[in-house]
Design a protein around this nucleic acid. Structure first.
Lengths: 358, 358
DNA sequence: AGCAAAATTTGAATCGATCCAAACAAAATG
DNA sequence: CATTTTGTTTGGATCGATTCAAATTTTGCT
């Protein structure tokens, strides 16, 4: 039926319908972008030609080059793409980002990749006006890549010393301090820390040197916050086991095995993420240990899942969605000097923490 | 410091560094895209110039026009952007889409909008190689918009009669039949249906005419599947209340109020989505009705949440992630004739369904 | 050195639009 | 009728790259 113009495999261009309608390409362009300035008769003629030739409207590829602005922001991470839809923290963050994008009519491009080369290429070739970078793991490399694009970008949850990158984060030291303080107030004196990565691709008990050499300043800050508070009440922090996890199930369980192999197991666990804490909750219950009677546990992040776990998790809540919103605004209104926001956190006491037995 | 070349507001182009390095732009281009074919000495000279002038690498905007392919697929919906991260069904679907995109190195662009004009524009100007369209609500308009772009696109979960659009869906009639059959087998004879939208922006009890005039064929098919099975065991289907919800909390609760205001309330509810069923579960429990003893309920979709609800939900599971993967493949390998896939569904019996009391 | 083969480099053409100053036409005004 | 004014249309320039045939330089070989 519609094969009048078919056979010609090449897609129709604006110039084609201009010729068909007997007008200049300038006029043809106007028919689509500012129809009100072209005479009705001509307008209809051009539209009819477009219809007849199966023209799908001005190709944004062409428009883009001229316009310069893509009207989309890229959200990048070193995790696979599904991270955005699976991870609770990421999802709340994305909800905030979505909101801000919706409000301004900007689109979202998800940028990510399994392997490193692909990631570099994806970032280099992403059609976006700026990047929001998720600095969970492989953060430093991501930031480097994003910086090379010379586009505005904001690092999320990064506590980089590098003042030249815009970043939005929370006061990790204060937050961690609040978590520790909550537990010491309850009377705990035997602790263990389940940490986020200090550096890439490593898990296990960490030494003081390794902490000092941490790639991830955020992890180090949380630890600092914990230990500072613990030593305030006289705990020998050199005896507190700090197990570095990869923020996943396997390494967290391994950490718990290690920690509870001790003669004097902790009565309280400081987990640097809710994800870790949630895994710990499950592991402890499977082990027959009661939370909070045998072991108290405090998470970090404040993801929705923490509110409905068994038992509900005491945690340090970050204003995750707000951070997302702020990030979008920082990109879109990227004008002034590099902006570095530090947002407040909040201790949310639920049922995973209580006084130690006896 | 780095202000040697600053002051010049205009971004650096490839041509600029070509001139600075004293080579043609052809050679400059090769330095970035096929470095192996340019003499080392020249290559370094160009790279140095790029570095010095703060060049961020070839702008994808330019490359795109020449290359033609964006290497990204657009996922469109008429809901706000946050839908992709909030809705359980969407999330599982996106996980499937992500997987397939990761495997081929394609990116994902989220296309959506609050209001209709914005949506049209967003679809018209999306930089993508094809669309995956979520036909939840406002589906017909979305499909129309996508079709106008003349790009490959696949409609998800759409049971359109229109054979000209590629679609991936499930056998709604068979699935609904399985749900109804499960309940009739348990002995139920008094039913109510909590339906998805038959048309846009309407909720309430629906009449037979309204069903016949349904915009959404999928909804109609599910109802057909339900009723066909019910009449098979002698239920007077004209007496079965069918309440059209907007697949949200408010309209579902309104539907339940209506249904349970009856003298002879149903002993079994057929819900066209797990989301509806989950809301119903909560409503019934708040009402003091026991599920499944007082009321049985069967959902549709098979979202992860349905497995952990209280009680766990009996449902008709769709291969959601698989549908997402299939959709991506259909876009990327869009060659042959319009493909229409119909995937099988599966009855998953959990604890929300049981024999009626007495 | 002389010549063919191989390795580099060049520069024009192209991708698909938008923009804008100038040209032109039609209508309004003196 | 000449002159503005207003409304349309035109075509060249531009956005920022890639590509490729042709030109040029280098290298290899006798």
């Amino acid at each position: 039926m519609a094969s009048l113009t078919s056979g010609n495999r090449r897609p129709v261009r604006l110039a084609d319908i201009a010729k068909a309608a007997g007008v200049s390409h300038g006029t043809a362009s106007n028919v689509f972008s500012r129809p009100e300035i072209v005479r009705e008769e001509v307008r209809e003629r051009v539209r009819a030609a477009a219809e007849a030739m199966g023209y799908g409207g001005p190709d944004p590829k062409g428009r883009l080059l001229r316009a310069g602005k893509v009207n989309a922001i890229g959200v990048a991470t070193a995790e696979p793409l599904s991270y955005f839809f699976d991870d609770p923290f990421a999802r709340v963050m994305m909800a905030g980002i979505s909101q801000a994008c919706d409000a301004t009519g900007a689109g979202i491009s998800l940028v990510s990749a399994a392997n490193n080369e692909q990631l570099a290429w994806n970032i280099q070739s992403a059609l976006v006006d700026g990047f929001i970078v998720f600095c969970i793991e492989g953060g430093s490399r991501l930031v480097e890549l994003a910086r090379e694009r010379k586009l505005p970008f904001v690092a999320l949850d990064l506590d980089s010393e590098d003042g030249s990158v815009a970043a939005i984060g929370v006061d990790n030291i204060a937050g961690a301090g609040m978590a520790a303080r909550h537990l010491t107030d309850l009377g705990h004196r035997r602790f263990a820390v389940l940490a986020l990565p200090f550096a890439d691709d490593r898990t296990g008990l960490v030494s003081a040197e390794q902490v000092r050499a941490a790639t991830y300043a955020g992890t180090r800050d949380r630890l600092t916050g914990y230990l500072r508070e613990l030593s305030r009440v006289g705990v020998d922090t050199s005896k507190v086991p700090v197990y570095e996890t990869a923020n996943d199930v396997a390494s967290t369980k391994a950490g718990l095995e290690t920690i509870f192999a001790s003669d004097a197991p902790p009565t309280a666990i400081l987990a640097m993420s809710d994800r870790i804490a949630l895994v710990a909750l499950e592991w402890l219950s499977a082990r027959g240990l009661n939370v909070p009677d045998d072991v108290s546990i405090v998470g970090f992040d404040g993801v929705p899942e923490a509110a409905v776990s068994e038992p509900p998790l005491t945690t340090i809540a970050q204003p995750i969605a707000e951070m997302g919103r702020l990030a979008v605004r920082a990109i879109l209104e990227s004008d002034g000097p590099v902006s570095r926001h530090q947002l407040p956190v909040e201790l949310i006491v639920r049922s995973s923490s209580g006084p130690p037995r006896g």
